[in-house]
Simulated scan of single mutants.
Amino acid sequence: MGAWQLLLVGLVMLLGLVGVLVPGVPGRWLVWAAMLWWSLHEQSGLAWVLLVAATAVLLVDQAVVWLLPPRRLRGVGITRRMAAFAGAGAVVGFFVLPVVGAIPGFIGGIYGTERHRLGGHGPALASTRAVMRAAGTSVLVELFACLLVAGAWLGAVVWG
């Protein structure tokens, strides 16, 4: 697979990761489609194993998200800025503390945004709890699954 195709696969995965944070964009399916595209062009044992694993992870993710309470974005104060900082925190946390760092990074991004907006620790903590109850858990689960798939793909490209 050429370098430009790897770049395109990576960009589609990145778009999928951003899509998890944007309502209405099929983030997990963009990540899966990018993995499918790469696997069909790579055609190696590792590529097929990663495609099967990505499919399983994303199907389990979808089932878990369906079991969680529905997202209630209105009335909680979730903004695009908050979603951007939460997503960026999850990505940074994913690479700083591989895999498990996405969770504290996501929550830290929400807390940091609220701390800046509200000015104090107490109100920011209360707001972070409200956001996580309203929508954060389902977004976090979906983002974590997509980060696992994207991280596995990146590892296969770099070290495979």
Rank of each mutant, 00 (worst) to 15 (best):
L143D: 06
G155E: 11
V18N: 04
L58Y: 06
V91L: 14
Q62W: 12
C146Q: 04
S127M: 07
R71L: 13
R80Q: 15
G160K: 11
A135W: 01
D61R: 12
A54K: 00
W37G: 05
L46E: 14
L50H: 07
A54Y: 02
W159F: 15
L147T: 04
A126N: 09
A34C: 12
W32K: 03
G155L: 14
R129G: 03
A130K: 03
F95L: 15
A152S: 13
L148C: 15
V92Y: 00
G119C: 07
E114V: 02
V60Q: 08
Q5P: 02
L97K: 05
T55P: 03
L11H: 09
G75D: 12
A130H: 06
T137D: 01
D61M: 13
V20H: 02
T55F: 07
L68G: 07
L15R: 04
P123M: 02
G101I: 00
W29G: 02
L59M: 13
V12E: 08
V22E: 10
Y111P: 03
A156N: 08
A33P: 01
F106K: 00
F95P: 03
P69E: 08
A124L: 02
G16L: 08
A53T: 10
W4L: 12
G109S: 02
W37K: 06
P26S: 09
A135T: 03
W48H: 10
P104V: 06
L50P: 01
V20N: 01
V100M: 13
M1R: 09
C146I: 06
G120R: 12
A126W: 07
L147R: 04
G160F: 13
H121T: 08
S39C: 14
V158D: 09
A126M: 11
L17R: 03
F106S: 04
R74K: 14
F95G: 07
W4Y: 12
L36W: 14
A88D: 01
W38R: 03
R129T: 11
L143Q: 04
V139G: 03
P98G: 11
A34F: 06
F85S: 04
G10P: 08
S138H: 07
V12G: 03
L46M: 13
S44Q: 10
V57T: 15
L6A: 09
R28N: 12
W4P: 00
W38I: 09
R81K: 01
T137Y: 09
G109M: 03
A34H: 04
F106R: 01
G77I: 00
L140T: 07
V141A: 11
A130F: 05
V92S: 00
G24P: 09
V9R: 02
S39Y: 00
R80N: 13
F94R: 00
V9G: 05
L147F: 11
E142T: 15
L148A: 10
R28A: 15
L46K: 10
V76R: 06
A83C: 07
E42R: 10
V100E: 08
V60W: 13
G101Q: 06
L6R: 10
V99E: 09
Q43L: 15
V149H: 04
L68S: 06
W37E: 04
V52E: 13
G93S: 09
L14G: 15
A47K: 02
G136H: 04
V64T: 10
A83Q: 02
A134T: 05
F95S: 07
L51M: 15
A102R: 05
G120L: 06
V149I: 10
V91S: 02
